[in-house]
Structure formats: C-alpha cells, structure tokens
C-alpha cells in the first residue's frame, strides 16, 4: 500500500501558470483571444508531454545505470576474491615453512658452523666445517602451519640445478680471503627465510670495510652469477 502525497512544487507550478495565462488573457479579446488560448493550451500540453517523455528517458537511463552499478560491484567483488586467493598463495609461498621445505627438497643444508670473514684485515673467525656435519643442524622445517596451502613447485628449479651440475666445478681449494664478488651462501637457509635474516649475499668488488660475510671449506669458484640461479649442489 502506498500513497502519493501532494507536494508543494506542484501547487506552486499551478499558481505560476495561472498568473502567466491570466495576465495574457486579460489583454486579449474576441477571436484572437480564442486563438491565443488554443495555442497556449497546445503549447502547454506539448511542453508537458515533452517533459514526461524526457523524464521517462532519464528514468530509463538511471535504471540501466543501477543495473550497471550492480554488475560493476559484482565484478569488484569477484576481483577482490581473486586478489585474496592470489594473496594467500603468495603468503603461503613466501612463508618460512615453505622456503625451508623447498630448500630441503633441493638438497640445501644450513651450516651450523659458519665461518666469518672480516674483509678489513682478511681475518677468518671460526673453524670451517662441512655442512654435512650433523651437530646442531636443523634442516627441516619444524614449525607447523595450517595455511601452507600452496608450496613451491620445484620441477623447474631442479631442472636448472641439474643443468648447473654439469657445468659447475667443485674445487676443494682453501678458503678464499679476497673480497667476495658474488657469493650466494646457503647459510641463508639457516633462517630458511627471506629478507635479511640469515642471508649472506655480497655483490661488488668494493665491499664495505668491516662487512661480514660467510665463508666455508669448499667455496664454489663457479658460483652462479645469475641472481635467480640455484646453486648446483649444496656445499655448506
């Protein structure tokens, strides 16, 4: 049940129309007056009709706009869902647990016996030991996560590693004390994480004085130069 209430603007329009037509009629007489009245009436009717049609057209556009708005809102919702799904996948892939598991699957081992190299005086701190030493070594992830829904696909990575194995020489040379030009240490996986923790990446021929980098017993002389390459074999 609905009701339409008389509104103030309609009453005002009626009064205004009367004022206009009344004023004009007062000046006309006879046949001219009748002609003018008929003309004005037609004009008014035409005007009202035009207004109605215009309103109808406008309403149609507005109504169509409302449906378009709903469509766009639905699209936005779907995109938000997609964004959320992708975000969750990224979170899962970049989680500590996935990185640790991926590192383990690739055969990388964190070295529990890191050796420190002070570039300022080329002094080595600590006794180098092979990463295979099991003392204090934690190479597998121990921290559970219920949202580890997507894990690293290592198919491509393993293929790259296999290629690298064929062209990589594994020397048994002593520790190199010269400034490290490009060393990607698997010690990064001591934290098995991204960011600063556990990483030891030093690039460039002019390292900062006093900077610390990790060294090991069997450094690679043909360490991958591509930043995305994966070391052929775990060495420390």
């Amino acid at each position: 049940m609905s009701a339409i209430r008389l509104t103030e603007p309609n009453r005002r329009n009626t009064v205004a129309l009367t004022a206009i037509t009344g004023g004009m009629l007062a000046k006309l007489t006879g046949r001219d007056a009748r002609k003018s009245r008929a003309g004005i009436a037609v004009l008014i009717l035409f005007g009202l009709g035009a207004i109605q049609i215009l309103q109808l057209v406008l309403n149609s556009f507005v109504a169509a706009g409302a449906y378009q708005l709903v469509d766009l809102k639905n699209q936005k919702r779907e995109l938000t869902v997609t964004q959320q799904i992708l975000g969750e996948q990224v979170d899962s892939l970049s989680s500590n647990q996935n990185l640790a598991n991926a590192a383990q699957k690739m055969g990388m081992i964190s070295n529990a016996n890191p050796v420190f190299l002070r570039l300022a005086d080329k002094k080595v701190f600590g006794k180098p030991k092979a990463a295979l030493n099991a003392d204090n070594r934690i190479s597998r992830n121990l921290i559970k996560s219920a949202v580890l829904t997507v894990t690293s696909d290592l198919t491509a990575a393993n293929a790259t590693a296999a290629d690298a194995t064929e062209s990589t020489v594994q020397p048994t040379a002593p520790i190199t004390l010269s400034p490290v030009t490009s060393s990607v240490s698997t010690e990064a996986l001591a934290g098995a994480t991204s960011g600063k923790a556990g990483t030891s990446v030093s690039v460039g021929a002019k390292p900062t004085v006093g900077a610390i980098t990790l060294s090991g017993a069997t450094p690679k002389t043909s360490a991958p130069t591509s930043t995305n390459q994966i070391p052929a074999q775990p060495t420390r």
């Binding site: 500590n96 934690i138 121990l142 098995a192 923790a197 556990g198």
Partner: peptide, 18 residues
C-alpha cells in the same frame, strides 16, 4: 619482532626441546 629471527629461534627451540 623480526619474523625470520623468530622462525629461526623457534626452529632451534623446537629441535632442542625434542
């Protein structure tokens, strides 16, 4: 908290607790 350090410490503590 540093997430990576937290993870590392948690790994160590879990392993040693076991």
């Amino acid at each position: 908290i540093n997430r990576d350090l937290q993870y590392y410490a948690q790994q160590v503590v879990t392993a040693q607790t076991n």
